[in-house]
């Protein structure tokens, strides 16, 4: 539970700020969507990279 609070403290301001930015006038969506797209793409990238690296390092470690 503590962890949820910790992560919420970290993430909520970020989400709120991004929302504020999206809804602020004049409203445009191109830059926010670029930004969010890049964030999502990078998180996916990190996850894939970790999986790949695991598979690669697994070859070196004696089983």
């Amino acid at each position: 539970m503590i962890g949820i609070i910790v992560i919420a403290v970290v993430v909520i301001p970020v989400v709120v700020l991004i929302l504020e930015f999206v809804l602020e006038k004049p409203r445009t969506f191109r830059i926010p969507s670029l930004f969010l797209g890049s964030v999502v793409a990078q998180i996916v990238g990190v996850v894939v990279l970790m999986a790949l690296m695991g598979a690669l390092l697994g070859l070196l470690i004696p089983q």
């Binding site: 996850v47 970790m50 695991g54």
Partner: peptide, 16 residues
């Protein structure tokens, strides 16, 4: 380190 992905796999239950 070959199992580092486990940290992401079990993220939902461990982040607590």
């Amino acid at each position: 380190p070959d199992r580092a992905f486990n940290m992401i796999r079990f993220w939902p239950e461990r982040v607590g």
